[in-house]
């Protein structure tokens, strides 16, 4: 049971959503945009972050879009992870989403919710960072169309009243060879110790990581080192450690040292496989 009361509204289009946000957020009310709801309900039940109002975005047609257009795949913010996976349109994102929570929850968790939630892992961000995705945000000042990498720095940079409307990925990026590895401490379904996504783009490996630090990231500097064939795998890994954006996370699932050990093993396996393919 959720102890506190809140207002629930479900607008039928984007303008109604913003109008509702403006009206409901007066008097310092805490208003959350709502997609699948799993994180908001969990936090509200625990009393840790209860809203005064929620605005359900699932009624906005464009936020439910999952469609190949001329040059892009368009994914609405309210599309569920399960829908993305079953569509088979973006295998890396489908695979990544299919390892977030469990299958039943994947039928509810949405792309927009995963990107903008407060849980630190946000693994759906990784494929978007790797494939030069674009993001379309909508808010009181209308649309903002941004490169995903510019909109996401440790967390999604939303302005007051903005929500994730759609994400667009170039068609040519959808079917690149990829690797997705998620390592958990014990259970298969759990938060990651480390998740690594990698794609091969023009014979160059791109990498993005979750779980290692307190936010998901892609690092061009790390990619340069990991693609440097003049260095041994061990040398690359050692140099990589110094380029992490912050020290690895230590928590109940694993120490930072252990996370780094897991990270090294995943990367080694990816590099070895690549070497074998090249040879």
């Amino acid at each position: 049971m959720i102890a506190n009361d809140f207002v629930y509204c479900k607008p039928g289009n984007r303008r109604e959503a913003v109008k509702a946000y403006r009206a409901l957020s007066k008097e310092d009310k805490k208003v959350f945009y709502y997609n699948g709801g799993s994180e908001i309900i969990t936090m509200a039940r625990a009393g840790s972050n209860a809203p005064d109002a929620v605005i359900d975005l699932k009624g906005i047609k464009e936020c439910n879009k999952l469609e190949l257009e001329e040059d892009y795949l368009v994914i609405g913010g309210a599309v569920s992870l399960n829908t993305i996976e079953e569509s088979g349109l973006f295998p890396l994102l489908g695979t990544t989403g299919s390892r977030i929570a469990d299958h039943t929850n994947q039928c509810r968790i949405t792309l927009g919710g995963n990107i903008s939630g407060t849980i630190i892992y946000k693994e759906t961000v990784l494929p978007l960072l790797l494939t030069d995705a674009k993001i379309i945000l909508y808010g009181p000042r209308g649309f903002r169309r941004l490169q995903f990498k510019n909109a996401f720095d440790q967390r999604i940079k939303l302005r007051d009243g903005e929500f994730i409307y759609q994400v667009k990925i170039k068609k040519e990026m959808l079917s690149l060879p990829f690797t997705h590895v998620k390592k958990t401490a014990i259970e298969k379904i759990d938060y990651p110790l480390v998740t690594v996504c990698s794609i091969s783009y023009g014979n160059y490996l791109r990498f993005a990581f979750s779980g290692l630090c307190s936010f998901p990231f892609r690092s061009v500097e790390i990619e340069k080192i990991l693609n440097d064939s003049q260095l041994s795998a061990e040398e690359r890994l050692e140099k990589t450690h110094g380029l992490l954006p912050e020290p690895p996370v230590t928590d109940y699932q694993g120490t930072g040292e252990y996370r780094l050990f897991v990270f090294d093993n995943i990367i080694k396996a990816i590099l070895e496989r690549r070497n074998n393919e090249v040879l």
Binding site: Y8, K10, G37, S38, I41, T42, R45, D56, K58, N82, A101, D102, H103, T104, N105, C107, R108
Partner: peptide, 27 residues
Amino acid sequence: CKNGDCGTCTILMDGLPAKACLVLAVE
């Protein structure tokens, strides 16, 4: 668990499984 972890409250919503502890009735 009432936290979306255990699945004892699973129902179907439009034919897809959903954990009823993580769905608002108004939804």
